[in-house]
Design a protein around this nucleic acid. Structure first.
Lengths: 248, 248
DNA sequence: ACTTGCACCTGACGCGACGTGAGGTCTTAG
DNA sequence: CTAAGACCTCACGTCGCGTCAGGTGCAAGT
């Protein structure tokens, strides 16, 4: 009746796994056959196969073999729920990462169309990385903490606010609006508000950005047509002087 | 002037990488220092560092070190563009996979709330996998091909159509509507239309599903309250007999 | 002169989930 | 008696480094 036993090859063919995979699961003790023939051949019972199916189910949602082993060892409902919840968060994070990367790659491809010299394309890459690495590890750690404190939503809001702020500021600068104009002053206040909200008032971050700007600003300006120009930065700087003198 | 050279530790601190990483890049010939001191210490030139920045930029968008090496070796614009395009597709696929997995996990969590016995939760897992593995590799390959032919949108449409179809059919069955009722016949036609659209008329797939149904139908019915009951399957079967006799 | 300390070196194992042989054993059919 | 399968056990390769372990070169302090 239920005495039927399965060999590895047979089981592999039935489940679509490879023999090596079953060997591996046996090696690490995740799914071991209950019996062996006198020749040492693996003989899987129905119970073994049920365990195998559970393992595959948990694998199919992306859990590691280690986690699966632990979960099946616990065997209770809450253990399973908690790994599923963790996995949900993990997959969320992964999906977001992928989307972010995707956006970067697409951005880069679009930029490539507007640049003539092939060498410049690579220079863009260099510069991208340089800006990132001008943050020291401590600063990066600090920023990461801020990110947690503020929460994802707040960060996204800030990131979406920036382009609008920049373009508004650009228009004023292009139109020659004086820096003590109320609109400009409001925008400037908002500008530094965002910067401080994001950096937490860490002046080291500002200095780093200033440093990279001195060295790379012109290049950046040439290549990133939608970004910040040195003129704009100077304009904002003058506006901020007026602002701080007025306010302080 | 430009005679400054950098040691590994110095460079590591400046870029935020580890010394080991720089060693690794040197080992595989990806970024090697142009010089060494007489003591064998690595001395990186500016050109080396520019190469390093390019490497990190390409890494930051998820390329493998091997791909980066190949791309930088080619050095031309089209090579870069093509790897970026490939990477875009790759990231797309990854993101979709993550989202699919996420959906599955969430689905599973929801199901867990409606089931009492912890053992049953694991049985759900078993059954999920069993259904999948009742498809032979050839069948799976075939289904994958169909998926491509039909396109993602069509598949999604079908998947969304199923629950509605099932619940409508369920109501008729519960109400005792005769199987030759025009509404029921229309629903049945749609039912098998969807099945065939999805499987491409591969009867092997039907047989597999029939087989798993005989063995697991009752269990499935107990655990998946929103799904298909044997009674409903029988009802649809009878409706289909009427349909095929009427049409053929 | 000796020690301490630091930055650096090479070499080698470890991870995760198997793929891919290599080389030997057991069983069955011809 | 042999050839063909199906099975066995090592054991190395993958990828991008982390993490020791053990040794060298050089400058400052004792």
């Amino acid at each position: 009746m239920s005495e039927k036993r399965w060999g590895v090859g047979e089981l592999a063919a039935a489940t679509g796994l490879t023999v090596r995979t079953l060997h591996h699961y046996d090696e690490i003790g995740l799914v071991s056959p209950s019996e062996r023939t006198h020749a040492g051949h693996r003989r899987y019972t129905e119970a073994d196969i049920r365990r195998l199916y559970r393992v595959r189910a948990l694998r199919s949602i992306g859990l590691s073999l280690y986690t699966i082993a632990a979960t099946l060892a616990e065997g209770d409902r809450e253990a399973l729920r908690s790994v599923l919840v963790d996995q949900l968060a993990h997959l969320d994070a992964q999906a977001r990462r992928m989307n972010d990367l995707r956006a970067q790659v697409q951005h880069l491809l679009e930029r490539m169309n507007t640049v003539a010299d092939p060498g410049e394309v690579l220079t863009i890459l260099e510069t991208m990385q340089m800006i990132e690495s001008y943050y020291t590890p401590e600063q990066l750690e600090y920023l990461a903490k801020r990110r947690e404190e503020l929460g994802e939503d707040a960060i996204k809001e800030v990131e979406q606010a920036w382009p609008q702020l920049i373009s508004a500021m650009k228009e004023h600068q292009a139109a020659g609006t004086p820096v003590d104009d109320p609109d400009v002053q409001a925008l400037t206040a908002r500008w530094f508000e965002l910067v401080e909200a994001f950096t937490g008032g860490d002046s080291g971050v500002h200095e780093s950005l200033g440093k990279v700007w001195e060295e790379q600003g012109d290049k950046l300006n040439q290549q990133f047509d939608t970004g910040l120009s040195p003129e704009l930065m100077a304009y904002v700087g003058r506006a901020n002087e007026v602002r701080t003198q007025a306010g302080g």
